[in-house]
Computed example of a mutant assay.
Amino acid sequence: MKKIIFCLLTFMVLSCSKTIEPSLGLYPVYFEVNLNTEWRLQASQASKIFTEKNTNQHDARFGLGGILVYNGFSNNGGSQNVYYAFDAACPYEASSNVTVEVQDGVFAVCPKCGSKYDISNGVGNPMEGPATKVLQHYRVDQTDKTLLIRNY
């Protein structure tokens, strides 16, 4: 009986100590978005992918495929818009050369494998295609008209 209890306790401790691994690995992310200059992002369901090529922030880090910023809906059912950030790289392809494209205002679709992700609530769940992992999402802190996006 003691062996069974010991085994159950060991199993519980080990299963609780697992950490959720990022879907793309650990790539540095640090980027600021000025909503006064990126005013289009203030509209509901607006999105933009930021990369080294289309920005001029010298200390910025863009993950694997760039940063997809999305103005979506609150998870608590409120009508207030909330900003979400994802890595633009498709987790199934896991390449900086294959980035998702936003379609119908609420989906990100991989042009190579066809995986379709729901980005409206900030989770990035795969809806169709071969992908089984969510889009890598990043922390977004908003102060007034500035978004700070990071993964630490």
Results as ranks from 00 to 15, higher is better:
132 T>S: 13
20 I>Y: 11
146 T>K: 15
135 L>W: 06
56 N>E: 08
14 L>P: 09
43 A>T: 04
21 E>R: 11
29 V>R: 07
140 V>P: 14
130 P>V: 10
17 S>A: 13
1 M>D: 09
112 K>C: 01
65 G>W: 01
44 S>R: 15
35 L>K: 05
138 Y>F: 15
39 W>G: 06
25 G>F: 03
14 L>G: 14
13 V>A: 11
74 S>Q: 13
39 W>L: 03
4 I>Q: 14
56 N>V: 05
5 I>G: 07
5 I>W: 13
125 N>P: 00
90 C>A: 08
108 A>C: 07
82 V>C: 10
68 L>D: 07
39 W>T: 08
83 Y>V: 05
81 N>S: 09
148 L>R: 14
78 G>N: 14
127 M>H: 06
65 G>F: 00
29 V>G: 14
72 G>D: 12
146 T>L: 10
67 I>P: 04
48 K>Y: 07
93 E>L: 00
134 V>W: 02
36 N>T: 06
22 P>K: 02
85 A>C: 08
114 G>D: 07
92 Y>T: 10
9 L>E: 02
10 T>I: 09
132 T>Q: 12
37 T>D: 09
15 S>P: 04
66 G>S: 12
86 F>L: 09
82 V>H: 02
99 T>I: 15
82 V>D: 06
25 G>M: 10
4 I>K: 08
92 Y>N: 13
85 A>H: 09
100 V>P: 11
38 E>S: 11
44 S>W: 13
14 L>A: 14
61 R>N: 13
126 P>K: 02
31 F>S: 01
19 T>M: 07
91 P>W: 00
115 S>E: 10
43 A>N: 14
65 G>P: 04
